[in-house]
Design a protein around this nucleic acid. Structure first.
Length: 485
RNA sequence: GGCAUGUUGGUGAAGCGGCUUAACACACUGCCCUCUCAAGGCAGCAUUCACGGGUUCGAAUCCCGUACAUGUCACCA
């Protein structure tokens, strides 16, 4: 049987990184099987928490990442609808809930919240798990139905066997076993007629033929309850892959509430979707070899549930930045130019060769946002201090500059073929002639035409891009500044 | 508080009884290269795997206890 996985987010806000990673892993697990199907399902049974536009964010993020689903609300599929609120309307969950009541796996409950809260308060601090002993369990079905017909509000709760244990084998955490006595008789159908996550999720996973349930480990301890439902219906249970959390630091999970990085934020900060995906795939998972950079397709090939770890992984923006830089540097120049031109143009409005500027920046920028600040000296020659000529390693200082700069100027003024090769050839004659080191000639030149302590490119590259006229103009200004000191 | 799960360096982590005086990557430090900064190359960076006990000829790897952390105990997902 081919693998079917699903990503089932609630449209309650932005897509955070932990969520995205769950989606990615679910995708990888499905796609590892050539016949595998990856499904997108929207879980919007909590009408009160819906956030407008949240569904679009989910679609957009998935699309930007290249996580294409095979079935989902927007593209349909054989087991739709793929939005839970639409399924509610067909009465589907209620129907299954009633069936479950007949099978002894659930019961009607008329207790109000106050009663339950009181029972809980009375129990507090006695050293045991609280479990509400629902008196409604003992109401006969006939009586219950009479009360419902009379208009009394009700919920449907799961009925859990008082004794015994329930266990399952998680693909990541191994064998998990709990006493039924501590399992909560959770609400399956709310008083508004909507199912809870706990119920809708089980029903839909079964109806949609999900073979591998991939979700956060916060569900680990409630999984036995879900299995009890599968068992009551006599359904096959899926494989479970519970994912360890993605943490912000040692103590806190990444969460949107704290304003932690969402996928959108990372895009705005100049990261590539491919790099983000690449990085988060490895939060809690590691490949069998030492490969670090993976395309999505390579991830599909390399991914293996057996190598998912059990402990929470801290999201490290520094490492992400490094991975992003590797991606950026690995691009061919054409694609790089296309990608970065808007960023370059933020800083460079003048008529310069964008391609050459891009080439200089490619080996240096780790994120797209680092690009503009590197390039601010092209349009306007910045004010700078003569102290910039002082560099111990290069053995340069303002005096050296006073000596070499005029020589550079003279050589450059004569060049008619303003190309990288010619500039290189002619400029490299100078150190020999002046009996200086290369750095003593080229370092001051670079400072003199850029006005910056560091630049994306050396003197020759920058001079080439600036053009002859502007280069000479800047040298003249710099020589004048040196003499006025 | 009950229950569940986890604990390898600053970070991600490999390892799952001997090949480990713990791989790899990021970060950091130093050196090399070099027209700056990067990139690249090389080297250094846990004598030790939360702690305590046990099993074993042998343990990061198995068992028990302690501590700590996270999750869960909602008509939220």
């Amino acid at each position: 049987m081919s693998i079917r996985t699903r990503f089932a987010p609630s449209p309650t806000g932005y897509m955070h990184i932990g969520n995205l990673r769950t989606a990615l892993w679910a995708y990888l697990i499905a796609k590892k099987d050539p016949e595998g199907v990856f499904i997108l399902r929207i879980e919007d049974t909590d009408q009160g928490r819906l956030v407008e536009g949240a569904t679009d964010i989910i679609y957009n993020t998935m699309r930007e990442c290249g996580l294409k689903h095979d079935e989902g609300p927007d593209i349909g599929g054989p087991v739709g609808p793929y939005v839970q609120s639409e399924r509610v309307r067909s009465g589907l969950y209620m129907e299954y809930a009633k069936k479950l009541i007949d099978l002894g796996g659930a019961h009607y409950c008329f207790c109000d919240e106050e009663t339950i809260a009181k029972a809980k308060a009375a129990h507090a601090g006695n050293g045991e798990s609280f479990k509400y002993d629902d008196p409604c369990k003992y109401i006969s079905k006939e009586d219950a139905e009479k009360r419902i017909a009379a208009g009394e509000p009700f919920v449907i709760r799961q009925t859990i066997p008082a004794e015994g244990t329930t266990s399952f084998d998680d693909e990541v955490f191994g064998h998990i076993e709990v006493d039924n006595s501590i399992l909560d008789e959770q609400v399956l159908i709310k008083s508004d007629g909507f199912p809870t996550y706990n119920f809708a999720n089980v029903i839909d996973d079964h109806l949609m033929g999900i073979t591998d349930v991939v979700r956060g480990m916060e569900y680990l301890s409630s999984t036995p309850k879900y299995n009890l439902i599968y068992d009551a219906f006599g359904w096959d249970k899926p494989r479970y892959i519970h994912c360890p959390p993605v943490m912000k630091d040692e103590h806190n999970k990444l969460s949107k509430r704290n304003g932690d990085a969402s996928f959108q934020d990372l895009m705005a900060k100049g990261y590539l979707p491919e790099a983000v995906l690449n990085y988060i795939a490895m939060l809690g998972w590691s490949p069998e070899n030492n490969q670090e950079i993976f395309t999505l397709d390579e991830l599909v090939q390399a991914f293996n549930v057996k190598h998912i770890g059990q402990n929470g992984a801290i999201f490290d923006p520094v490492k992400l930045t490094s991975v992003n830089g590797l991606w950026l540097r690995g691009m061919d120049l054409d694609s790089y130019v296309k990608l970065t031109e808007p960023y370059i143009r933020q800083a460079v409005k003048g008529d310069f060769d964008i391609r050459k500027i891009a080439a200089g920046v490619q080996q240096r920028a780790n994120t797209l946002c680092e690009i503009p600040p590197m390039l601010d000296f092209y349009d306007t020659f910045p004010a700078y201090s003569n102290d910039l000529y002082l560099n111990k390693k290069m053995k340069t200082n303002p005096d050296v500059a006073r000596e070499t700069l005029p020589a550079c100027r003279a050589v450059l003024a004569e060049i008619t073929d303003w190309t990288h090769d010619t500039l290189h050839e002619r400029l490299m004659e100078l150190p020999v002639k002046l009996e200086k080191k290369n750095g003593q000639v080229l370092f001051p030149l670079r400072v003199a035409i850029s006005g910056k302590p560091s630049t994306p490119g050396g003197a020759i590259e920058i001079a080439e891009i600036l053009g002859k006229e502007e280069t000479l103009r800047r040298i003249d200004l710099s020589i004048a500044q040196l003499e006025n000191e």
